[in-house]
């Protein structure tokens, strides 16, 4: 059996992603959680690069790790959340959360079980699917309607945020 660099990287990234995702939910300090979440985003970006989706990887870092997580950190730092001030949740609510999350995991695993992975991975590796030229052409030809609709959705969200912000 030959081990390629891609496989080694895949295992390293998977372990990193799972470990940091676990740390997100087990850290006591919310600031630590946010930082572990950023680490998770980075390892997922690494997976995108392995799938030759470079654009997605970089945008994932710019938008999620670089912008949204900064806002998360802002809020958490300013509110100064810590263990003492955090309201203790009911045990039943915790259990309900765990069961709901478990159901979601089950559905995801079940839906991915029958995916034909080998052939699609070969397809992805050979092509330049994730490269920006190809992606741009696809987005603005085949998927132009959903693309424009989602951009209008973003615009309306922005206008909404401004309106709410202006209200005294």
């Amino acid at each position: 059996m030959t081990i390629t660099i891609t496989q080694i990287l895949f295992w390293i990234l998977s372990v990193a992603a799972l470990f940091s995702a676990l740390m997100v939910i087990t850290s006591k300090n919310p600031v630590h959680s946010v930082l572990w979440l950023i680490a998770t985003f980075f390892s997922i970006s690494g997976h995108y690069i392995l799938l030759s989706a470079q654009f997605l990887a970089v945008v994932n870092i710019i938008v999620y790790a670089g912008a949204i997580m900064v806002l998360f950190l802002f809020v958490i730092m300013l509110m100064n959340l810590n263990r003492e001030t955090e309201p203790q949740k009911n045990r039943w609510i915790k259990m309900a959360g765990a069961i709901a999350g478990g159901c979601l995991l089950l559905v995801l695993v079940a839906s991915l079980k029958n995916v034909e992975s080998a052939s699609t991975i070969e397809d992805v590796k050979g092509g330049d699917v994730g490269f920006i030229k190809r992606l741009g052409k696809e987005l603005f030809s085949t998927y132009v309607v959903p693309f424009e609709i989602s951009s209008i959705l973003f615009l309306s969200a922005m206008v909404g945020a401004v309106v709410i912000g202006k209200k005294e």
Binding site: L35, I38, I61, I62, A65, G66, V70, L73
Partner: peptide, 12 residues
């Protein structure tokens, strides 16, 4: 874009 992504992480 890679430069931009690293700069955006530089805030941390």
């Amino acid at each position: 874009l890679l430069v931009f992504s690293i700069v955006s992480v530089g805030v941390y």
